[in-house]
Nucleic acid binder design. Structure first.
Lengths: 259, 259
DNA sequence: GAGTGGTCTAGACCACTGC
DNA sequence: CAGTGGTCTAGACCACTCT
């Protein structure tokens, strides 16, 4: 194919373009089965590899998914809505509700594979927490499912310095326990005198690593959203760093703010 | 390849995995040239198509880019930071500065291909503006470049009802002119008595359409960020809808808010 | 068992880059 | 002009799904 315009596009692109148009126009709806390799070979008089290449374009665009032994299907797409500001308002965790309960519409979240341990976090995590290199942190990892499907995995980091000298307090113990108690981690931080008052979230997009693709059961052509949240006290001390990796096709992020 | 685990992964995946590891470990740095098809064929004793398939994995992951006639190179990645709340504060457009001037660090934006016209917008646009189906709107489209590279394209919609009966006022004329004047569109809206007070932004991710890939000069494996912003007055009337498509590899979005 | 997609081989011609 | 990636053909064997 030429670097820019001029001659006609390669055959496989034209086939892909034709199918793409038919998907967009509604000729093929969500979940419908697309013409397979054999059909495309006949109809367009091309070799198998060329038909495959056309289909791989759609798959890498996230428009279609291949099911082995069955066919190629139009991808379905019904995102969840995640609210930025509203969901972290003190009203919620101040009253014993966990954050993620406000996230999804009527569909409920399930938490899976919660692991709590202590590690020396990566450099960017330490920086966000205002810790020096080599310092340890409590790490809380888990995965969230909606309707049985994994949609995000989250890892939260907290510095043990926040409860130094009070290791045995109920709040400090809960932070290191799988069940963080009513209101979650933020309520415990408040009990320790480190109530979160400000948040900053950084959003990045990229294609998943193979590990992430497996953990979130992503089909090819699905990008991930990476949300890195830092929670700060009213005097702007960082008290938590949370790294969330989300199925990009599963979410719409919403932020509301004033001029 | 097996549906889940068991047997060994296909050859092309192993080759891709090996290269991926070498990229991550720093064995190949940003912009370095990776072993090409011929090299992989020799070293791994595979056919050309298999070597190609391995490389296409990395390319679709956004880790590498192919340059015809030259080689395969490790992708570089240095994102811009786009601030959500801060950049839309009234201090900025209230004083005659355009929004995008606050966006990029030291690198400057250039605006290109500004087009102003009147159209009947898509349904979701009309809904965001609170307009009935079939209503027209002024559309302002443009593209932003950083260091000569296209990074986002934006389309803004405004209802003519906002200046009904005042078509000839300076503000209304500027809104329909390529140069919207000091402070940009939001300053003009304020002059018309529709000063934006609240914003809501919706963020979506997906793989680009071929048209978007061309417009933003995206290399394969690059997702796009879609930011849909609605500007509301203090009495919550929508006055502008802005749809921004961004090179996902070029941006980090940041939002700051309080508990 | 027929049909589907997944992997792989061994060729071919082309357009482009860089020396 | 040698080397690179881009496209394409014509086969092959396999694992899986569906009926």
């Amino acid at each position: 194919m030429p670097t820019s315009e001029n001659g006609s596009p390669p055959v496989y692109r034209e086939i892909a373009e034709e199918l793409r148009g038919q998907i967009r126009s509604g000729r093929y709806a969500d979940g419908d089965r697309l013409p397979g390799e054999n059909t495309l070979m006949e109809h367009h008089g091309v070799a198998r590899a060329t038909a495959r290449q056309a289909l791989s374009v759609l798959i890498n665009e996230g428009l279609a998914v291949a099911v082995r032994g069955s066919g190629i299907y139009v991808r379905q797409f019904r995102p969840l809505r995640r609210h930025g500001a509203r969901r972290l308002s003190k009203d919620l965790w101040g009253n014993g509700r966990a954050i993620w309960q406000t996230d999804s519409d009527t569909r409920g979240y399930e938490v899976e594979g919660l692991v709590v341990d202590e590690v020396v976090p990566a450099e960017h995590v330490l920086r966000s927490l205002g810790l020096d290199p080599g310092n340890p942190a409590v790490r809380r990892s888990r995965r969230y499912l909606v309707e049985g499907r994994p949609v995000q995995s989250a890892v939260s980091y907290l510095s043990p310095l926040l409860w130094a000298g009070r290791e045995d307090s109920p709040a400090a113990q809960r932070i290191r326990a799988p069940d963080s108690g009513p209101g979650g981690i933020y309520a415990r931080l408040a009990e320790l005198g480190h109530a979160p008052a400000h948040f900053t979230e950084e959003i990045r997009v990229r294609m998943p690593t193979p590990e992430e693709a497996e953990e979130l059961a992503l089909s090819p052509g699905t990008p991930v959203l990476e949300v890195a949240r830092t929670a700060l006290t009213s005097d702007h001390r960082p008290v938590e760093f949370n790294e969330i990796t989300m199925d990009g096709s599963a979410y719409v992020l919403q932020y509301d703010f004033d001029a």
